[in-house]
Design a protein around this nucleic acid. Structure first.
Lengths: 164, 164
DNA sequence: GTTCTTGCAAAGGCTTTGCAGTTCT
DNA sequence: AGAACTGCAAAGCCTTTGCAAGAAC
């Protein structure tokens, strides 16, 4: 698979006249971004490292961390840090913004979004004089699979139907 | 200041018949909880350690971490982990649930809550078959003080007035 | 006396950084 | 050639854990 990566051709950070800090194309970053795009979302640095290693066996973990930071800075990927404190990454742009439903039993993530909540967040920020730039909503609970008894599942199903 | 701490008198975790794991009263936990209650919210373990040290100079950082975990388990305090990955703590119960507006410039936290957002979160969870147990909403942006130019501040003020 | 708590130091997990060599422009 | 990128190992940070000593019940 070939992925158009569209790295910045122009310097993306200027520090001082002498040091231009132009970003260069690099096979490692390509491999990392490819690995990120072609695999499942919500993976941590270690998992992305493992995936990138399949493409470029010698790639080091430090390079992965540096690339992830770089790609975040470029806006090509986005970082998200759940309650366990371990950063997860996912491609940005390719998918719309979403929040996360996180199962406290099996650890799985579900992506979800509610336009009305999004809107109300803006209102809440404005109400406190905040200039909103981003937000993170994480909902913890039990996923349908872990919710337990059949009774509980049925109750859930009923509520779900109603909400839709 | 004297604070009624109301530690569990009964065992709060049972492991096996022999080992009862009853929680015992301890001056360290008292000091840590007092420090937490009497100071500002949203402090990390290190800051709480410093505050507790003023009451009990010899107290160790490990004890602080253990006490914070214990107090979370008791439900006396609540933990919250923002995007920097460093846990913050605040007394629970004394104040209602709230979300956080976090300034990306000066790092300050503002507590806020929107009942409608709370309600919609329940709906969103139900829609995906999730049995909601808790949630975390963090809104990142610029606080009024950091919002920059007077023009930006005025714009904010205008929007704020409107939202109210 | 048994069980829980504590301080210290060591270790743990995740992430960043220093450095010397390599690659890109 | 100059500047950025890389791998490795070491260090950093926050947090947890092992252990022997102390305190509570």
């Amino acid at each position: 698979m070939i992925i158009v990566i569209n790295m910045p051709k122009k310097p993306f950070i200027k520090r001082r006249p002498g040091a231009c800090r132009a970003a260069r194309r690099s096979s490692r970053r390509d491999a990392i971004l490819e690995a990120l795009i072609s695999g499942p979302g919500h993976r941590n640095a270690e998992q992305i490292h493992a995936a990138a290693r399949k493409r470029l066996p010698g790639i080091g973990i430090a390079t992965v961390y540096r690339a992830l930071k770089f790609l975040c800075g470029c806006g090509k990927i986005s970082e998200f840090i759940p309650a366990d404190g371990v950063a997860r990454y996912e491609p940005a742009g390719s998918r719309a913004h979403h929040d996360h439903l996180i199962c406290t039993s099996c650890g799985s993530f579900i992506e979800a979004v509610d336009p009305e909540i999004e809107r109300l967040q803006g209102r809440l920020a404005a109400r406190h004089g905040f200039k909103l730039s981003s937000h993170k909503l994480e909902i913890y609970g039990l996923c349908p699979g872990c919710a337990g008894t059949g009774a509980a599942r049925n109750a859930l199903r009923r509520r779900t139907r109603k909400a839709r």
